[in-house]
Design a protein around this nucleic acid. Sequence first.
DNA 1: CAGTGGTCTAGACCACTAC
DNA 2: TAGTGGTCTAGACCACTGC
Lengths: 237, 237
Amino acid sequence: MTQRATYQSVAAHIQDRIEAGELTIGRRLPSERQLCEQLQVSRANARDALHHLENRGLIYRLNRIGWYVSPPVFIYDPTRTHSILHEARQHQRSLETELISATRETVSVAITRTLGLSSQTPVYKVIRRRSIDGRWALLESCYYREDAFEGLLEQELGGSLTDLVSRHYGYRQRSLNIGISSTCLNDQQALCLQIREGSPALRLERAVSVDGQCLIVEMEHWLHDAVEMRVKGESQE
Amino acid sequence: MTQRATYQSVAAHIQDRIEAGELTIGRRLPSERQLCEQLQVSRANARDALHHLENRGLIYRLNRIGWYVSPPVFIYDPTRTHSILHEARQHQRSLETELISATRETVSVAITRTLGLSSQTPVYKVIRRRSIDGRWALLESCYYREDAFEGLLEQELGGSLTDLVSRHYGYRQRSLNIGISSTCLNDQQALCLQIREGSPALRLERAVSVDGQCLIVEMEHWLHDAVEMRVKGESQE
DNA sequence: CAGTGGTCTAGACCACTAC
DNA sequence: TAGTGGTCTAGACCACTGC
């Protein structure tokens, strides 16, 4: 506290350079070895500093490629009725979506049970990744009851699934059960987002019900520094 | 991926011991040096493994004291109308509250503005920490408009503030604006919770309004592995 | 291929806690 | 005072990326 550790000085130095505009958003930082030399510290020390800045959301890394200055958080209402694309447009952020897989298969008991199905019943599973301002920021896994979404796999799955569900399938009045927690990414998830296994993430699970029956489970894994969730509520005691 | 790193083996080993029940919830792990010797790895390596398990929420550390097995997450609805004490009782978790400070002072512009006040107007500020099953898990900073909570500092501030607001001050119908994001703790916050500066946390900001006027801003910092937020929603397209 | 981050070793001293 | 985690050094080799 009173005495500042070396790695904290290093972190402060890098932070200063970011805030001074010398390193701008999306720019790559000098390599770890360059930082060591510039600041005359050991590499472990430099890495400690980088990890701290990463935790604080100022920088992020692409696995085995380098360190970059983080863009501002994306503001996002998980109870929203419209597509996330609206939110992106509203905040003038570029959002791109890439379909990774769309299959019919049996999935974990937890999800199957949430969907009100017996354990071996197959469901539609759609996996996509999304980038914000050019950075892969979000991995999305959606699970659909087969009986409620006939022909889903033949639909266009690269756009707004929210719109598809409401326009094509006609499910408009929905109730949601949302869970938000901190987690970290496993091998596959990390690979999809080009980051290191074990990176911290914000997990959003959304169970969508129509007439009391859960039809969709959506699972989102956001890079921890990429998002802020905003929710409005009413309460009466 | 194909080849497992040493630190991953170490992490897996510790995880096995936890899952086997050899290390139970709240128990302290062997010291880092003991782990090094037991598993024949360097200390940096052992620490890497511990950090990974910490990220994944399996273990946590008390600053300069040791590593411990994490309790399960606390489930919590930030839009709830009742006190969090209800939730604790419901899930049979012990929750304790300690008042750290209660003052009248000028605070950050961001909060003052949210409260609809001009920048130098003092507000009531109440800081508390809360433990779950004996572990400090949550730091709470609440800001109240002075004109709406006369005599607040003379009230009993160690119990449910939700109840105080609704019973004593009569604010029952409220609307909420909630923000949830990932963050990490600064020196002071970390000190209060006995953990290391920079530890990852879940930040919950709640602006409470009555008749369109914001009267309270509540800021909660939860240890990242201590909580899962659950929200219900309705949506109509 | 050169350069990056990822993993790893074998030490060292310091600040702090618990006793 | 003994033991803990926190910080730090000066190396090393590996896996992978981008050219």
